[in-house]
Design a protein around this nucleic acid. Structure first.
Lengths: 228, 228
DNA sequence: GATTTTGATGGACGATTGTCCATTTTTAAT
DNA sequence: ATTAAAAATGGACAATCGTCCATCAAAATC
């Protein structure tokens, strides 16, 4: 039996965190005031001090919550992936670009906290740990790939591929932040795999997209007028 | 004659903008108050309203100023580059990762504004235009590369290479934001060129040096997009 | 040198910020 | 049913926010 008392208590805690995240996503950090938060949560003014001891702690808890949510989602997705390293990397990339993870709300929240993370040490830590865990997963997979491929300077290649893949994902997120309407998930994934396929042709290919390795060049010859 | 009056006026305008950027870089946006600004600028309280009509406009002007500064620096660097597209791309990448452009101050400012750009339409616009101009320069170079290389689906390849390179640069900036102390410019550049070398082995090499052009006979033709 | 013009000053102002506590309400224990 | 304990309320509070204007100082013009 949870006890109605403790149950309500936890429920209100989460309501406050949710209200912060909603407000940050919608209005930005600078407009996320105590008044705004308690109005969204439908609770009284004193609750913040009661549950978190102050607004800063609440915001920090919200950042932590959001970070955990992101990583849990990604890890759950990863458990449905196959065992091969390329499958795992593909799952991470597609997962990180999926609607469930990469959406306006999450992106807004993520970048809002990042912009203020310099001062809020605790928030910066969450960025770090998330980054660290994700990096570990990707690096692990690439290590196996370069080992199989017997690449020269294997450890350097794995590290660079990891770093580059992470950077590419970060860049795509930024893309989404700046142009959420014209962002194309398929294109983002295709570009990442195009780079990976160029580096590890034996492990990645461009399925679904043009893969004209041995086909004769059909001379598309369409002059590029398309804006970038 | 500039007139001592107008001269002082402009000087104070710039002092206010500089104070905003210093404060944003050092304390973050949320702690950049009017009091903080005028204290740093050594001017009186009314100046903000006099010169900019309000704090929001001043912050916007500061964002604009910072953005212009970034792009001007990059463009100046680009004019010292050679004519070949690979030289231009290398110059852009190395320039974007150079100490002069990528440093704590600029990164802090840039991400602070990004985090709040959702609401401030004007600030978001500057991100856009900067992004657009940079994208144009890179896309222009890749268009020439794929044309020379007679790549199948040339326009798609150029677009993807542009998109990927921009994403990689963005990711490296984020890297610097989160770990300014252990960031390695050389490593960042090496990774980008490693990806580019994999995609365009005839044009980029792993050492980061530009690959010597194999055929000199090819007419450069007119650039698809004219540089500003 | 006198006058006009304009930039610059700094305090007053109401609004809003986050904190905190006296009080009330609700649940658990007796 | 009564008491004890905990949770929730909402307003008081000082501090700070950004705006604006009456006033002053200085440069430009006459």
């Amino acid at each position: 039996m949870a006890g109605k008392r403790e149950q309500n208590r936890e429920q209100n805690r989460l309501a406050l965190i949710g209200a912060v995240l909603d407000s940050v996503a919608e209005k930005g950090i600078s407009e996320t005031s105590v008044s705004e938060i308690i109005q969204r949560a439908g609770l009284s003014r004193g609750m913040i001090h009661l549950h978190f001891g102050g607004k800063d702690n609440l915001v920090q808890a919200a950042a932590h919550h959001s970070s955990e949510e992101y990583y849990d989602g990604l890890e759950a997705l990863l458990q449905t992936a196959g065992d091969s390293p390329q499958e795992r990397i593909e799952m991470i990339v597609r997962g990180d670009l999926s609607e469930r993870v990469l959406n306006r709300r999450n992106v807004n929240i993520w970048y809002a906290f990042r912009g203020e993370s310099r001062n809020r040490t605790a928030i910066a830590e969450h960025s770090d740990t998330r980054d660290g865990r994700l990096r570990g997963m990707i690096h692990n997979a690439f290590s196996r790939i370069v080992r199989e491929a017997e690449t020269p300077d294997a450890s350097g290649a794995a590290r660079d591929a990891t770093h580059g893949t992470l950077a590419l994902l970060e860049g795509m997120w930024t893309d989404f932040l700046l142009h959420p309407d014209r962002f194309d998930r398929g294109e983002a994934a295709r570009i990442i795999f195009r780079f990976l396929a160029a580096m590890f042709p034996a492990h990645f290919s461009l399925e679904g997209a043009v893969q004209p390795q041995q086909k004769k060049g059909a001379a598309p010859a369409a002059p590029a007028v398309s804006d970038p």
